[in-house]
Design a protein around this nucleic acid. Structure first.
Length: 422
RNA sequence: GGAGAGAUGGCCGAGUAGGUCGAAGGCGCUCGCCUGCUAAGCGAGUAUACUGGGAAACCGGUAUCGAGGGUUCGAAUCCCUCUCUCUCCGCCA
């Protein structure tokens, strides 16, 4: 959520910068709502001040029969206050609802673009493997090794669900543990294991609601949502809190499954593990001092890249252009891993700085020092990494001519020492 | 699922025959003084949001005692609904 005061004072600038995202925002509506809010506020508060003053006087009068006239007056004042408050409430709700649907302002240097084609490649790492045979896509490898069962996944739940079997299940689990160990032991993140369902407030805090409810699985009977990413519960850990500046940055990592409806992606990535309703992810989340948030973003990105470097999987980093930026993000770098079976790079991590956008929604603040006023922290997060897609990358990059798959060396301790899935 | 108890400021904890309560007291913390031996004493300060004025320092107004609604001139205090926490019973990995 953007700061109403900042918006009020910089309406044109904000409007121009939001336009680069491609979504037009009618800030005139804001101007109207904000104006009438302040007008109503002044009216009702003036009356309340009067009422408080007279009520105080009444309390001093011993003989209440002497106060009847003023009581009658105040009765009327109270009625007017009630009316104004009701009107004000309506305006404030409308204003709040409006502000909750306005996306974040892109970072100053974010490349301006009109589609994902305008994303900018920042760097590449690793050598694409050379094959003396035609590399297969992971769904073929997985099925012929009998470690991924798409048909039975569909039988159990439906399309976009997969059953992992044997070495496939173990590989997924090994990856989760490998990533968590790396981030906790080497990168010094604190591990969290949060609820996989959250309430409406949490979803609003990170920006999934109110705008994107159709992407979420909602429980029947209770107002809970399945989390689409650990970002939601982990960022909301400090919702409504005031943190100590000396504790920043707070760096958390969490493994969770993620649940997404993938509405609007019919026919897209229908084969294999790329786009599932349920997938595993290890997430990195930071709460940072505003002055440090962009250097923290660089570090977070590097922490995520480290997973691929250790697994020796080729990848590239791209910076998202204004049109491709997520609703809450100010700046985002995607890590894309090389998938030889599909002859393309695919997103495996998305690392963003949300600046104070989520912090304002969720009221996550810090005090620079004892005396100063609380300020909003900057929140950041990134996948470190999407586990299913990492498994995909391993299958495709480490596949052999005979159909087997070599286990990356860094992963072998997590796989009971086995070197090959055959 | 059944029965009961509770939710006050950073923490602890007063405050229910409605007014002088943004809220006693203590702890903690900050600043100053004193003292001097590793601690104590004294004084002052110490919530947040919105909003009006001001260049600013700052001054004023309103709201907030779990959340929302009601009664009343006036509610932390009375009434209703909800949420959460705790205890006991049942069930259960």
């Amino acid at each position: 959520m953007l700061d109403a005061r900042y918006l009020r004072e910089n309406l044109e600038t904000v409007e121009a910068r939001l336009k680069t995202r491609g979504a037009g925002v009618d800030l005139e509506r804001f101007r109207q709502l904000d104006g009438s809010r302040r007008e109503l506020l002044q009216q009702t508060e003036t009356l309340k001040a009067l009422r408080n003053k007279v009520s105080d006087e009444i309390s001093r009068i011993k003989d209440k029969s002497q106060a009847q006239e003023r009581i009658a007056e105040m009765r009327e004042v109270s009625q007017r206050i009630k009316g104004l408050d009701e009107e004000l409430k309506g305006v404030e709700e409308a204003l709040e609802n409006f502000l909750l649907t306005v996306p974040n302002i892109p970072f100053a240097s974010t490349p301006v673009g009109t589609s994902e084609a305008d994303n900018v490649e920042i760097r590449k790492w690793g050598e694409k493997p050379a094959f003396d045979f035609a590399p297969k896509p992971h769904w073929e490898i997985g099925e012929s090794l009998d470690i991924l069962d798409f048909e039975r996944g569909a039988k159990l739940a439906g399309a976009r669900f997969t059953l992992y079997k044997g070495a496939g299940a173990r590989l997924e689990r090994a990856l989760i543990n490998f990533m968590l160990d790396l981030h906790t032991e080497r990168h010094k993140y604190l591990e969290m294991l949060p609820p996989f369902m959250v309430n409406r407030e949490s979803m609003t805090g990170t920006g999934q609601l109110p705008k994107f409810e159709e992407d979420l699985f909602h429980m029947e009977g209770v107002d809970y949502f399945l989390i689409p990413t650990a970002e939601v519960p982990v960022t909301n850990i400090h919702r409504g809190e005031i943190l100590r500046a000396t504790d920043l940055p707070l760096c958390y990592t969490a493994y969770t499954p993620c649940f997404r409806k993938e509405a609007g992606s019919y026919g897209k990535d229908t084969r294999g593990l790329i786009r599932q309703h349920q997938f595993n992810k290890v997430e990195l989340v930071k709460f940072a001092h505003p002055a440090d948030s962009y250097s923290e973003l660089d570090k977070l990105l590097d922490d995520a890249e480290e997973v691929l470097r250790l697994l020796e999987l080729p990848y590239r980093v791209v910076e998202l252009c204004t049109a491709d930026l997520g609703f809450s993000a100010a700046r985002t770098f995607d890590i894309e891993v090389w998938l030889p079976g599909q002859d393309c790079y695919r997103e495996i991590s998305s690392c963003s700085n949300f600046e104070d956008f989520q912090a304002r929604r969720a009221s996550i603040r810090f005090r620079a020092d004892e005396k100063s006023k609380p300020e909003f922290v900057h929140t950041l997060n990134g996948s470190g990494l999407a586990v299913g897609r990492t498994l995909v990358a391993i299958l495709e990059n480490y596949q052999q001519a005979n159909g087997s798959v070599i286990v990356p060396e860094a992963l072998r301790p997590y796989m009971g020492g086995i070197e090959k899935i055959a």
